[in-house]
Amino acid sequence: MSLNQATRVAVLLSIGQHPVTARARRADQDARALELALQLNHADVIPLHVGQLNEHNEAALRSYLGMGISQIKLIGNSDILLGLEQGVRESQANIVLCGSRAETGEGSGLVPYLLAKKLGWPIVSGLVSIEKLDQGSATLLQALPRGQRRKLKVSLPAVLAVDPAAAVARQSAFGPAQRGAITPQKLSSIEAVSGAEVKHNSALHSFLWQFQPAKKRPKRLKIIKATSARDRFKAAAAKADASGGKVLQGVSADDAANEIIKLLLEESVLNLDGHL
């Protein structure tokens, strides 16, 4: 990479799905990835989408355009992974930004890893912000649970998968969304190979795989180590914990504090290792 070369950021955009109504929309994490890219100074942003443009997904794709980009490169009719690889290679990007997992289909979150493997680049997931871009490396912030953050330095080129805790994507405006272009890309080297591979992959598993609307997972019951019939009977017949809460009136402040701390420790939200 020459010294004067600007950072080129490929942003992978997919069609999302609203969690309540299942309507197509911009995928939340991908939009956050685009937001991160747009906030980088002196970076060329290359938005990529692999798939077909149709009535069902046009509005969703356009809502990325509404964030203020002039065009999305559309890589049509190929295996997603191969399409992405080619798209990224041809765009000469040195950073790939994407969401952690898709909102439709399997949504396994494997694609960024597979892409990184194919490109031979390192991957960092859980990205919340890009602090600094140097020649050949980037300083990142990674999300840890409970709002904690960790600083990482990664050598470029790299694939960066954005965490749901990253900054919320800007509003999508109607005007730019309508005017922006979705440009189909002609990629040179995919052709027949990809077709064969797609068939191969789908033959492998799709006949076994079934999708259903998500079932509500049963709440885990308290495990009762019932060694006798009597214990089992008692456990089965025991009145469920009263749904109404416990109300303590006229207790001393100390007792009240003890009750609170007891519950906090039970729920393990209180970390006693912390500073005083």
Partner: peptide
């Protein structure tokens, strides 16, 4: 109070002070 799993009726200033003291002790 109706919604709460644990409701404490009393002066919040005092109770919070007691919580602070107890947690510091525990730590």
């Amino acid at each position: 109070v109706k919604r709460a799993d644990l409701a404490l009726i009393g002066d919040s200033t005092e109770i919070l002070a007691a919580v602070r003291r107890k947690v510091s002790e525990l730590k």
